[in-house]
């Protein structure tokens, strides 16, 4: 295989169109990279993924695997729905509620049927994805690439965090995961108050 000359590579980057992900900046590396970076440029989506992955990891490796697949898939479906204009009425406070709910479940660390975390993953993925997609409603086809990039980032973070949470063996490690869940729930509750106050 021929190696790409650096100048050609740089030229290719220059020709890739940027995308106007709402409230974010362009990476200059194209819509997939923009979408991937989007997850890390705002705490609302990232914390929801981390909380969901911790909940899945505390439930064991089998559940972690299933949630790791379900969450990005739902994120992508929600994103496409939002982009098509089907989900423009998701209130911002719903994001805060998702952090609060999933964070409390992590902090409580109670055994529950695997259907509950899976349903939560689907709900969280659909809602956050829809908000992402709605922000790209005016964009062209490259929005789908950005949404795929975000779903890819969700997959990576979910995989890493759920793997870590499912590997804890010592009691204090499990408590550390629970404390992180309580922090996320506390952030969600404060954010909910801020969102309701603003509205």
């Amino acid at each position: 295989m021929r190696r790409l000359a650096p100048a050609r590579l740089a030229g290719a980057f220059l020709l890739v169109p940027g995308i106007a992900f709402a409230h974010e900046s362009s990476t200059g590396l194209g819509p997939v990279a923009d979408g991937f970076a989007h997850l890390f440029l705002g705490f609302d989506d990232l914390l929801a993924v981390v909380a969901m992955a911790m909940l899945a990891g505390l439930g064991g490796r089998a559940l972690a695997r299933r949630v790791t697949l379900a969450l990005p898939a739902a994120w992508l479906v929600g994103g496409v729905a939002g982009w098509l204009g089907f989900a423009t009425r998701v209130p911002a406070s719903a994001t805060a509620l998702s952090l609060l709910l999933v964070g409390i479940l992590v902090a409580a660390d109670r055994r529950a049927p695997s259907a509950i975390p899976l349903a939560l993953a689907a709900g969280v993925g659909l809602m956050h994805g829809a908000l992402n997609g709605a922000a790209l409603a005016g964009a062209g086809g490259e929005a789908l690439l950005a949404l795929a990039g975000t779903a890819g980032a969700v997959l990576v973070v979910s995989l890493l965090v759920s793997r870590g949470a499912s590997s804890v063996t010592r009691p204090w490690q499990r408590v550390a995961v629970r404390a992180a869940g309580s922090w996320i729930a506390a952030i969600g509750l404060l954010y909910l108050g801020w969102a309701l106050k603003g509205s």
Partner: peptide, 24 residues
């Protein structure tokens, strides 16, 4: 144990509830 772990788990949540009341 278990207070050493439970207090830091419980405190942020209850304090956030107080913050929520203040915001509202």
């Amino acid at each position: 144990a278990p207070a050493i772990w439970l207090l830091p788990v419980a405190f942020p949540l209850v304090m956030a509830f107080g913050g929520f009341l203040g915001l509202m």
